[in-house]
Nucleic acid binder design. Sequence first.
DNA 1: CCTATGCGATACGCAGCCGTTGCGTAACTA
DNA 2: TAGTTACGCAACGGCTGCGTATCGCATAGG
Lengths: 205, 205
Amino acid sequence: MPAPVTAPPRAPGRPRSARAEQAIQEAAIDLFVEQGFDAMSMEGVAARAGVGKTTIYRRWDSKEDLVMDAVGVCQLNTVVDPDTGSLREDLVRVLTAFQQTVRNTPLGHVFPRMVAEVAQGSDLGRLYASRMIEPRRRMLLSIVQRGVGRGELPLGADMELSLELIMGPVILRRLFGNAPARGNIARCGRHVDVVLAGLRDLGGR
Amino acid sequence: MPAPVTAPPRAPGRPRSARAEQAIQEAAIDLFVEQGFDAMSMEGVAARAGVGKTTIYRRWDSKEDLVMDAVGVCQLNTVVDPDTGSLREDLVRVLTAFQQTVRNTPLGHVFPRMVAEVAQGSDLGRLYASRMIEPRRRMLLSIVQRGVGRGELPLGADMELSLELIMGPVILRRLFGNAPARGNIARCGRHVDVVLAGLRDLGGR
DNA sequence: CCTATGCGATACGCAGCCGTTGCGTAACTA
DNA sequence: TAGTTACGCAACGGCTGCGTATCGCATAGG
């Protein structure tokens, strides 16, 4: 009889602490968000995680490795296409969700940092663009295309411009807005209405 | 008889080289754009400017002083309100000018870096926001308000949202766009048309 | 008990940068 | 010519951070 499939092929010696691993990743994200890649330090990560530096370097080869991996783990946060059957409803939901995420979660706190990384074209920026921005962009695109298919937007509508009109204002508000999200969610509805009205009037040329 | 007003009250000794001063500021901007504030070094500035470090520290007290001043000097670049009498024409001109500036001038190269600084709330970011963003924001606001005054937009139009719809897409394109400004200028016209149509339809609520 | 591995803590070598100082030279005035 | 100031260069002290090494203890299986 074969050993059970779930049998853990135990290595000898003391096993690595899963708890330490998680604490390190959380500390890394925290410090990256607060200080950025350059300003944060491995000593700081170790201190905040309550861990020796050795324990970090046993798992990751370098600071870059650690941060890339920790940022990657954040992306469990999946994209959900609401697909309500209404273009307006889909867009409002996506925008309010984005607004919420980008304001009140660690994922959102990293956002301005990452914008700079992306614009600069660093490795970290490319990773973030491919795993965070691109999937959301594709989702938004398919939402709008479904709307075109249902006749909610004219056939010739400029997709590029449409996406920019949808996301631009929200991102702008996150980057430069000093107001603390006061009434922003209510504004999403008006925002979507204005964009859709404009695209319906002139989208087909 | 008074001395001529233009008389240079010459100090004794060798005068400071205006050329070195300019070279230093240009090098500082270049390196700030390429590497950011933390990553750039005074040694690097001196090397690129073909100057000794001493010559820099004789004029500025610190790295921060130098960069703040150099960025400040960039702002000779004044904001010009086209004021053509047409809201659409004003907006298109402002957008194309912004597009041009932000793509092809040193002022624009700093932009992504500065976005991060602003979002982070650093001193440099506050300086940039107050001298670069705010004046342009005010100009744009007065353009739109003139349009409302002429009846080109309804009275109840949401100013905040209007400005975001105008600038958001262009800024988004600068930050995340990979396309090299191909046909972007032509797109400004459509962009403005769509926004104005939407605001006319639904701007008053 | 014995061996193997992980753990936190501490110290270290190495490198980079900031801002300063000293030196010999260049520019300019009186 | 004498005096004053700026210049480029090189070296330095102080600091900080990365990544490594070592130590004594903890946790596991045999």
